[in-house]
Design a protein around this nucleic acid. Sequence first.
DNA 1: CCATGGTTACAAAAAGGTGCGTAATTTACT
DNA 2: AGTAAATTACGCACCTTTTTGTAACCATGG
Lengths: 122, 122
Amino acid sequence: MKNLVSRCPIEEVMQVLSGRWPTLLIYYLKDGTKRFNELRRDNPTISHKMLTLELRKLEDAGIVQRTEFNGYPLRVEYDLTPAGETLVPLIDALGEWWEATDSPGQQHAEEIGNAVEFDRPV
Amino acid sequence: MKNLVSRCPIEEVMQVLSGRWPTLLIYYLKDGTKRFNELRRDNPTISHKMLTLELRKLEDAGIVQRTEFNGYPLRVEYDLTPAGETLVPLIDALGEWWEATDSPGQQHAEEIGNAVEFDRPV
DNA sequence: CCATGGTTACAAAAAGGTGCGTAATTTACT
DNA sequence: AGTAAATTACGCACCTTTTTGTAACCATGG
């Protein structure tokens, strides 16, 4: 999804929240400051390239705050911005909606063959 | 995004809402019953393949109701399900959040070169 | 050599677009 | 009267574009 088709704000948010990682990263950052490699440990199936790309995207969108501490080795911390924190309940509401509506095609946990065991938020 | 990485309901909703089209289609279906070609006219840049795929996905998720009338030519109507209607305000909330937070990397309407003129919801 | 937090180039995989075929009936033209 | 074309909502095969993964490289200090 490189460019927009409409000028609707909804399409703009979805452009940044779409995909596997954005909401997951926001979920982990809810708990507070995290460093790059902590986030990698939280979701081991993300490649470091994806992680940097997604973090940049969230940073550009004003959802994530990146703070670089120069020391060696370089240390970088990621937090939610105040705006990012106000986004969290909205995303949670979507999750609750999903749980509440037991839709026909909804996958139940037991059926998800490819879910990774060691990575199970919520 | 073919399969899930966690068993978190948020990831599951995002799997169906991710991408350019799902929220846009929901947006148009808010107004009431629509037929296939009406939806194509509403967003002229979607291909018929994408439209059928996205509508099926939303149907499987219990968001959209598909009703087939056999006659010739075949007529098919799409509506939001009751569950789909309860989803609308949540999506709207995201759009409002986006408008409220004037994030640095946020594209402003005037800057979007590739936005299609004749397709401008909201 | 290790660790940190990257970048870059190349390759694989996934997503998306294009065009053809299908059905039964109506309308349009010759 | 006979033929042709359009209509609706797709399915299918093929091809291009976009996204993601892999691997290698960088800097630095311990």
